[in-house]
């Protein structure tokens, strides 16, 4: 710091030295007045604490500092072209940088939109595929099995694959993708393979009703009614909305096939009491059960 202060006087010219001597100013001495930046900061009220008190105490008695502050304000040298160019460069460079960033941010915003679009396409594709497959089944599959001769109420119909878009969009894409793959043999009518594919998935995702439901239905078609009833019972416990009703309906069918008419009646009662697409069929089924010999439903 001392060296820097000495350098301040390095560009003194002879006439200046002479004048300073005449004025009694020691060359290389230290200034007693605070620097201009602190003087201005003091006048603008930007200083606080001990520094404010110190500068204020000096300025109060120093006419030179008072004059300097007054004159500096009066000089009013406007912004030079060079200064303006530097400020402009800094501001507009940052501005263009931000605009570029905003453009990239816009692309980031597109990612979820693209993902949603892809999921929607998958859902539509699955829906169309399901309808086509249903048509194929209608034309080529054997007639629906009936649990009771002359009883259309308990006709076993293959439930089509229907994975809701919300399921695909709730951050369960991995599960949805695995389920979609595992359902391929189910859709093709290969229930044995479907069971093999759906069983590990149902174990891996015990809280996901869809895998359990299609596993249970596949087990019904495989005539493994006890296992089907178990799978569908678990599916009913975790299913929500219309899928819950569907689980209970097929559970009732599995229970009837498994020779558990009392359990089937209890399941049907729940369906009959609740509003839903299976309500009428469940109530009709209950009536039929009560009017027929329960034993006739067992195979």
């Amino acid at each position: 710091m001392a060296k820097e202060t000495d350098l301040r006087w390095s560009d003194l010219e002879p006439e200046e030295e002479t004048l300073l001597k005449e004025l009694g100013v020691p060359i290389g001495g230290r200034p007693v007045c605070p620097p201009l930046d602190l003087l201005q900061a003091f006048h603008s009220g930007a200083l606080s604490g001990a520094l404010r008190r110190h500068i204020g105490g000096h300025v109060e008695h120093c006419r030179v500092c008072q004059i300097l502050s007054r004159d500096f304000a009066a000089m009013d040298v406007p912004l030079t072209k060079e200064e303006d160019a530097r400020i402009r460069a800094r501001v507009f460079k940052a501005h263009s940088g931000r605009q570029q960033l905003r453009r990239w941010q816009f692309l980031w915003l597109l990612i979820p939109a693209v993902a949603a679009a892809v999921l929607a396409v998958i859902a539509i594709w699955m829906h169309v595929g399901r309808q086509n497959h249903a048509r194929q089944l209608a034309s080529s599959a054997p007639p629906p099995q009936s649990l009771a001769a002359g009883s259309p109420v308990f006709t076993l119909e293959k439930p089509p694959v229907a994975l809701s878009v919300p399921l695909l969009m709730r951050g369960r894409q991995a599960y949805a993708a695995a389920l979609s793959s595992a359902l391929e043999p189910y859709e093709a009518g290969d229930y044995s393979s479907a069971v093999k594919r759906l069983d590990p998935l149902a174990r891996k995702y015990p809280q996901r009703a869809e895998a359990l439901f299609y596993l249970g239905v596949s087990e019904i078609f495989e005539a493994n009614y006890g296992a089907a009833a178990e799978s569908l019972k678990r599916a009913s416990a975790v299913a929500r909305g219309s899928l819950a009703s569907e689980c209970r309906w097929y559970l009732a069918l599995a229970e009837l096939h498994a020779g558990q008419p009392a359990n089937a009646a209890a399941t049907l009662e729940i369906l009959c009491e609740a509003a839903g697409v299976y309500q009428k069929r469940a109530c009709a089924g209950l009536k039929e059960l009560s009017s027929k010999n329960k034993a006739s439903f067992s195979r």
Binding site: A2, T5, P26, G28, G29, R30, P31, C62, V64
Partner: peptide, 13 residues
């Protein structure tokens, strides 16, 4: 750091 140097008197206002 400047304390060892003589303070030059303020200019005569």
């Amino acid at each position: 750091s400047d304390q060892d140097k003589p303070a030059f008197p303020a200019f005569d206002a």
